[in-house]
């Protein structure tokens, strides 16, 4: 900088920056900084999704290949996570198993949220439909979701698709109940009445004023459903009512290791740790989204 004296002007030196002004970061990085647990969760989830997608290229062998001579080995350089009772490589099985868990989690979240949101909104907005719909939802909710899923899978052939449907049916009432409550409180708000009195049709009122204001709770609920669906899927597979045994899933791996639990605990523990970390990551993202999507907290809506 040119010293002021050289310009022949008596200009005071600029004051040093005592408190450096840092503008709040916008965009993705700003969001990540404001919400550390959510970013950790998101990173974990991205890593796990990557593992699921690229499982064949991550040093895995055929997860179904049995080798009777190498049964129930402890982790070694050859088999990073050891082998199970049939000599199958647990590392490969766990990595391929991530595909099932994540797919079931996301599919159930999308399916149950979409259907449940539609049902809940109808119940909340259409007065006469409210009572019959919600009594039906109460009836479904009165059955424990695991039992309902077992019953539904038992009625059909075990397959990943049927597991997804069964878990989704059990989760739909929860979304519907949440959405009905949100819509009931929104429709009484003055701005919805104002929209009606400024001539907006019912469809427009729902689409422009009600739906956008339900998105935040719906997304948050979807993440919790995703986490819960992964646990239910693992539970169903563990008791043999879920993903067919021919497909490696974390629940199946744990079920296989159950007999050797006291002597070779790693067969159960490794997929369990993966499941726990995944569920934790999803819940961390969900909590972060809840904070970020709350319009009263959002600085840059």
């Amino acid at each position: 900088m040119t010293p002021p004296a050289l310009l022949g002007l008596a200009v005071a030196d600029p004051l040093p920056d005592i408190m450096q002004h840092t503008p709040p970061r916008r965009g993705l990085m700003g969001l990540a900084r404001r919400n550390v647990p959510a970013s950790i969760g998101a990173v974990l989830l991205i890593v796990l999704t990557g593992i699921a997608l690229f499982a064949p290229w991550l040093g895995t062998v055929d997860p179904l290949a049995i080798s009777p001579t190498l049964r129930a080995r402890v982790p070694s350089a050859e088999h990073w996570f050891g082998t199970d009772m049939l000599g199958r490589d647990i590392y490969s099985r766990v990595l391929y198993g991530a595909r099932v868990s994540l797919f079931v989690g996301f599919a159930v979240a999308v399916l149950a949220t979409a259907i449940g949101a539609a049902i809940g909104m109808t119940a909340g907005y259409v007065r006469w439909a409210d009572s019959p719909i919600m009594r039906l939802m109460d009836a479904i909710m009165s059955i424990p979701s695991i039992l309902l899923a077992i019953a539904l899978v038992a009625l059909t052939r075990p397959s990943v698709g049927n597991v997804i449907l069964a878990i989704a049916v059990a989760e739909i009432p929860r979304v519907a109940r949440l959405l009905r409550g949100v819509v009931l409180s929104l429709r009484e708000l003055a701005y919805v009445e104002a929209a009606v009195s400024t001539g907006s049709s019912s469809a427009k009122v729902i689409w422009r004023h009600i739906v956008p204001n339900t998105i935040a709770p719906v997304i948050v609920q979807a993440t919790y459903i995703c986490a819960s669906a992964m646990i239910v899927e693992a539970t169903l597979s563990f008791i043999g009512a879920g993903t067919p045994a021919s497909i490696p899933s974390w629940g199946n791996i744990m079920a296989d290791g159950r007999a050797l639990w006291q002597v070779k605990p790693h067969i159960v523990l490794i997929p369990a740790v993966f499941l726990s970390v995944t569920v934790l990551a999803v819940n961390m993202v969900g909590d972060g989204l809840r904070d970020a999507l709350d319009p009263r907290m959002a600085k840059t809506v």
Binding site: L189, Y191, A194, N213
Partner: peptide
């Protein structure tokens, strides 16, 4: 109508322009 509560009578997710455009459009 003009409502009593100026906080609940405006949609928090809409810009003022869109709030005013709604009746004009309708």
């Amino acid at each position: 109508i003009v409502f009593q509560d100026p906080f609940s009578s405006l949609d928090p997710r809409m810009r003022v322009r869109d709030i005013l455009a709604e009746p004009i459009h309708n």
